[in-house]
């Protein structure tokens, strides 16, 4: 099977500081990978490099495109990469304000990607937006409300709808449950797990919350100081951590 994403030797430096160093992995279709580590460990830098938001200093990011098979996204032209960003990729930001247009209604937010790829029929866009709002458990009667009137959890769900409406194959998530209270987190995770499984999405989830990767991820990559220190199946890494830092991370979780 061709991996949907194949990364090798990915390095990003911020002057003398290391963002991430020599990161490599393969992600297969339908697989969810969790990237965990403490703040400043380079996991968000890694995600931005993968999604084309940052340009890495070295390495390759080979994505299995629909039309032409595996291609290095770093050597692609800007238009091609941005096209991927609107169609085959989705990026869920930690703060919904970064991923939503706050002055545009919920329906407009969901419809934007459709219009970006040339949908010219209001009725079609409207019904797709309604469909997706109900899929992420937002009351359809709120379709014309602005995201500013939504709660944090709803904003995050709206952001997910907005990203998944174009039927992407690879989703990047940066702390998707950050800043939400635990019951809202649980509901969001439940929803995400359902969507990922039903749509057969591949996803890379960056988080510092081990519970999130426990629920969502098939595989885990542990990062510290810009380097990958441990990888493995989710259960394996969480239940039998090998690296000292992973052991510390796992044992740091509070038990209630």
């Amino acid at each position: 099977m061709t991996p949907i994403l194949q990364v090798g030797g990915l390095t990003k430096r911020y002057g003398r500081h290391i963002g991430c160093l020599d990161v490599g992995f393969r992600l297969f279709p339908g697989e969810v990978m969790g990237v965990v580590g403490e703040s400043g460990s380079g996991k968000s830098t890694l995600l931005s490099c993968l999604a084309g938001l940052l340009t890495p200093d070295a390495g390759e990011v080979i994505f299995d495109t629909r039309a032409e098979g595996p291609r290095d996204t770093l050597t692609m032209s800007d238009p091609e990469r941005r096209m991927l960003g609107r169609t085959d990729w989705a990026f869920v930001h930690q703060n919904p304000r970064d991923g939503l247009r706050m002055r545009v209604s919920a329906g407009g937010n969901v419809g934007e990607r459709l219009m970006a790829v040339g949908a010219k029929r209001y009725g079609t866009i409207r019904s797709a937006a309604e469909d997706w709002l109900s899929r992420v458990e937002i009351d359809v009667s709120r379709i014309d409300d602005r995201p500013a009137a939504f709660s944090g959890g709803m904003q995050q769900r709206l952001q997910i709808a907005r990203n998944l409406v174009s039927g992407p194959r690879l989703v990047f998530m940066d702390e998707p449950t950050g800043g939400l209270d635990v019951s809202v987190q649980a509901r969001l995770l439940d929803l995400l797990r359902g969507l990922v499984r039903r749509m057969g999405l591949s996803a890379i989830v960056v988080t510092h919350d081990l519970a999130v990767v426990r629920l969502l991820a098939d595989r885990i990559m542990v990062m510290k100081d810009g380097r990958v220190v441990e990888t493995g199946l989710a259960d394996q890494v969480l239940d039998d951590p090998q690296h000292a830092y992973t052991q510390l991370l796992v044992s740091s979780v509070l038990q209630v």
Binding site: R82, R86, S105, E112, R113, M115, V117, I125, D144
Partner: peptide, 22 residues
């Protein structure tokens, strides 16, 4: 400027969508 250069004009329709929705 980037949107003009790459002819990414989907956003313009978002404005019209908002008009109709409201």
């Amino acid at each position: 400027r980037k949107m003009h250069a790459l002819e990414e004009y989907g956003l313009m329709h978002v404005k019209l969508y908002e008009d109709i929705a409201r």
